[in-house]
Design a protein around this nucleic acid. Structure first.
Length: 675
DNA sequence: AGCTACCCTG
DNA sequence: CAGGGTAGCT
């Protein structure tokens, strides 16, 4: 897989994590967005403001720089250049003196009757803050003002908290947290990993938000291009082409919007907001077509962002807060929470103590979650996995999404797995980045698949699959951890709550990528174990180099390498035990000819092996493995028949033969996100 | 000494 | 599957 782009991004994005990277936006967005009086933005919407600013700055920009097709590469460059200023912005944003509440409308104190609206408002605000977009809500959405102000403040608090936490040296985190929480007896290293896990998960969520900002940015760029082209053409008096171009875009937008109707009906606020946006920037455009285009674009942007944020936020909130309060707190004392979202219940003034309390609460809740999931796993996990880092599935049971039982067969394009693979949001973003730049607006990946009517079928399929996988994950999680554990192969590499997060570890920071699943892991996960088992179908004696090649997301050290080697050693052990057993069985059955011993997919031997290495039976075992198994069985049969088993090391000769039968492992296994 | 394979055990 | 012991190799 081509990882050059992700790796590029990885450095920039991860380094900027704690600064929340407002520099992902264009320079015009990068100016300090937090200290700007919100009231000065009479036009309200984020879109209109951004567009306004962008248009003003447009002339200074090279037209070719921000084309969608250049996508993230351009962003990376921008990030590097502006990292300093962005940090300054954050610092200012974190200043308590910059409370947003000052100029914001408080005229309305209407209690929120619509929980979803409130939630959406919260999310929007968090996004605004994270995107550094000034926004005023003075146009009649007094309903939201309360929530908005509070959540904006909370979002900033969380930023400060994140920063503070991430600056803590790891040993300090551990000792501090350990003192706060009840340490599970004997829960040594595993609980320590969990602390990092959760912190890392929070990072991932932030990264997702970042990428959403990028998407917004890309859409804005796209619009600007259209807009500038249009203006150019208008100036040249070529209105015909403009119209056709507009119609083309307009169709796409309408297609999307029509499918978005329910969504907007539910959230009339968005619609109103969009209309206001249109009015606000209407003076910028000339002609009804431009207005229409702008309208559709803005609606699109607004809805898409809302939807994206909703999803991430839903995930965070359901992960962190939708937990049974009855569950006992006992594990994961080192858990560190740095979620910059869903701190909805405490409109505090963000004193350090209060944030600590919040932190403790969230920690305990997450601890419960992790413990319960671990318990669940322990019940279903019949095999010892003491060295395997157990991680929670990325998608917990959603309180919103109803249980979905595989409404249709899930298509898996890249590989033979035919189970419903739960997918992490990052994977969605990965898909998004893969397809987004080449697709129309209607194909904005974070939109529900139903909206995607302008994209090629393959893309539709891909997104349908992605979305459905997420749903399936939600419904399966907790009930069938075993079945989802396989899919978690993909998830694990993305979610990585256990990744060791050392503030000083620039290398590991640089090795992490927010979009692809190239996160370097400190430990081996059940996903890796599953992957290793599947690899065993191809190679019984992998070299350490092969292992390093095929576990690119693993940070190899002596211990990890040994563990992986040990895994394969164990795999071989089981394999040879089965071979010997079935060889002896064949002899006992009176088989006299080696030729009479075959191994097919119906064979009991194969079933035993398949059960061991491919328990979920979701992997198509290569024919070559059957041949090797048959050959091995023959070797054992011959050896036993010749009474060679009286020799102490009679198996060694067989090992020598079998080790030459390794075949190449498919390239797909090299992709860390493959499983 | 360090690494690995193998074997046995839990 | 992991741990621990042993043996062989470099």
């Amino acid at each position: 897989m081509n990882r050059s782009l992700p790796e590029q991004n990885m450095h920039n994005s991860t380094e900027g994590l704690e600064d929340d990277k407002p520099e992902v936006m264009l320079p015009c967005f990068r100016r300090n967005m937090y200290d700007e009086p919100l009231a000065s933005y009479s036009n309200g919407s984020i879109i209109s403001q951004l567009l306004h600013k962008k248009i003003q700055n447009k002339r200074a920009l090279d037209e070719s720089h921000f084309y969608l097709s250049t996508s993230t590469a351009a962003d990376s460059g921008q990030e590097d250049q502006s990292s300093v200023s962005s940090k300054d912005s954050i610092v200012e944003a974190e200043s308590p003196s910059n409370h947003v509440s000052a100029g914001v409308s408080q005229e309305g104190e209407h209690p929120m009757t619509d929980h979803l609206q409130a939630k959406r408002a919260r999310v929007e605000n968090i996004i605004r803050v994270m995107a550094g977009s000034p926004n005023s809500r003075q146009q009649g959405d007094s309903e939201r003002s309360d929530v908005d102000v509070r959540d904006l403040r909370e979002a900033r608090e969380s930023f400060r908290e994140n920063k503070r936490k991430q600056r803590l040296p790891q040993y300090q985190e551990h000792s501090t947290a350990g003192g706060q929480m009840n340490r599970k007896p004997g829960g040594g290293s595993s609980s320590g990993d969990k602390g990092n896990n959760k912190e890392e998960e929070c990072h991932k969520l932030k990264e997702q938000l970042h990428s959403m900002q990028r998407l917004l940015h890309q859409l804005q760029e796209k619009f600007l291009q259209v807009y500038s082209q249009k203006n150019l053409k208008y100036e040249n008096g070529d209105a015909t082409e403009v119209d056709s171009e507009h119609e083309f875009l307009g169709e796409n937008m309408e297609s999307y919007i029509s499918h978005e109707e329910d969504f907007e009906r539910d959230d009339s606020m968005v619609t109103v907001d969009c209309k206001e946006k249109i009015k606000a920037v209407g003076y910028l455009v000339q002609g009804r077509e431009s207005q229409n285009l702008q309208e559709t674009l803005k609606q699109e942007l607004s809805s898409a962002i809302n939807d994206c944020v909703d999803r991430v936020f839903k995930k965070v909130s359901s992960t962190v807060l939708d937990l049974s309060p009855q569950q006992r707190v006992s594990s994961s004392p080192e858990m560190q929470i740095s979620v910059g979202a869903d701190r909805t219940s405490h409109p505090t003034n963000s004193t350090y103590d209060e944030s600590q309390v919040e932190e403790a609460v969230v920690k305990s809740q997450l601890s419960e979650y992790y413990e319960s999931s671990e318990d669940q796993s322990t019940q279903d996990q019949t095999e010892a996995l003491s060295l395997v880092v157990r991680k929670p599935t990325a998608a917990p049971v959603s309180s919103v999404t109803p249980a979905v039982k595989r409404p249709y067969a899930v298509h898996h394009t890249p590989f033979q797995f035919n189970y419903a693979t739960p997918l992490h949001e990052s994977h969605i973003l990965e898909q998004l980045l893969k397809y987004g730049p080449h697709s129309n607006f209607g194909a904005l990946p974070c939109m529900p698949p139903s909206m995607d009517r302008t994209s090629p079928d393959s893309m539709s399929l891909s997104w349908d699959t992605v979305a459905m996988r997420s749903k399936v994950t939600s419904s399966h999680f907790g009930h069938h951890p075993r079945s989802s554990s396989m899919g978690a192969l993909a998830v694990d590499n993305l979610c990585l709550p256990h990744v060791k997060m050392e503030s000083g570890d620039l290398q590991s920071m640089a090795e992490r990528n927010p979009y692809m699943s190239l996160n370097i892991q400190e430990g081996l996960t059940p996903s890796h174990l599953k992957k290793a088992k599947l690899m065993f179908f191809y190679t019984r004696y992998p070299s350490s180099n092969v292992l390093k090649t095929f576990f690119p997301d693993v940070k190899f050290n002596r211990c990890i390498t040994s563990q992986l080697i040990k895994w394969f050693s164990n795999f071989r052990e089981f394999y040879y035990i089965q071979m010997e057993k079935f060889a002896r069985q064949a002899i006992a059955d009176g088989i006299t000819e080696v030729k009479d011993i075959t191994v097919s997919r119906d064979s009991e031997l194969f079933r035993a092996l398949n059960m061991h290495y491919n328990k979920a039976n979701d992997f198509h075992v290569p024919d070559r493995f059957l041949e090797v198994a048959e050959l091995t069985l023959h070797e054992f049969y011959n050896a036993i028949s010749a009474a060679k088993d009286s020799d102490t090391s009679w198996k060694k000769a067989i090992y020598k033969v079998i080790c030459k039968l390794d075949s190449d492992i498919p390239e797909e296994f090299k992709t860390s996100s493959y499983l």
